[in-house]
Amino acid sequence: MEGDDIIEVRDLEHLFGDFAAVRGISFTVRRGEIFSFLGPNGAGKSTTINVLTTLLPLQKGRVHVAGYDVAREAGEVRKAIGIVFQDDVLDRDLTVQETMEFHGRLYSIPREERRAQIDDLLRVVELESKRDERTKNLSGGMKRRLQIARGLMTRPEVLFLDEPTQGLDPQTRMRIWEYIRQVNGAGTTIFLTTHYMEEADILSDRIGIIDHGRIVVTGTPAELKNALGEDVVYLETEDDRRVRDALSGIEEIRSVTDSTRGLSIAISADGSQCIPKIIDAVRSAGIGISSVNLKKPTMDDVFVHYTGRELRDTGA
């Protein structure tokens, strides 16, 4: 095992009856990084997370988390990880303080340390004033913050965040991103799943995309976007026809097509570096330019590129 890999998954397979939810995936998460695990509904994300967090038994393959084998050392894995579940997993009738107490006691954290941790974490997620409030009276954002605080109580080496910002307003989401970065900055490895591509893009060091139970690609957000080679420059000029000839000498240009407003030029390399060349070429041909626009692929494009367009909710 690599010393720097905090999660190591080799040939993981998982069946539910006849249905193969996960079909032999392998990936690693490096210590200290934010790793995002993306995939359409039913792609195998939850199954993988559940195996990694020991909620599902390992059927086939090898999985190490924080240096422990999930099959043989589940107890050690459980001590080393924190989990923020997808839906609001909070006892409605416990107060904020009691929710934290309960969790700390489940992990046998000694009283003094537990109290100190609760104070610290409630301050971090700005819930100090809600200590004695029952969780059913908290807003959606507060509930999520409380769960993040709870997941951190045990000072985990890896924090699993399953859709941490689902259904939250933009302000709350950004605040939660800040917490995630803060936690990660303090040394905790983050394993994140999300449906928000922009969230994965902004937060992650690396991204793995899973579909139909297989990992289709892994890489940094920049690598994934650049690999698509789908930078597009939109150009409006006085004379689109002559522009085509003027651009023929630029080798990064893959195609030039008419679009609703001017020309759409597909670039195989970094589009922003290609724009000056395009402008020079068009100007030297004596053609006036009225507007230039660059569109880089987003994580949405990357996601759709690798997982296709059809809807998944209908089947699984």
């Binding site: 909620l55 990880i81 989990i83 579940f85 839906d87 909070l90 006892d91 969790h103 992990y107 046998s108």
Partner: peptide, 13 residues
């Protein structure tokens, strides 16, 4: 049903 069981099952208890 409320998912709370997971918190306990995923803990070392």
């Amino acid at each position: 049903n409320w998912g709370l069981m997971r918190e306990m099952l995923a803990s070392p208890m």
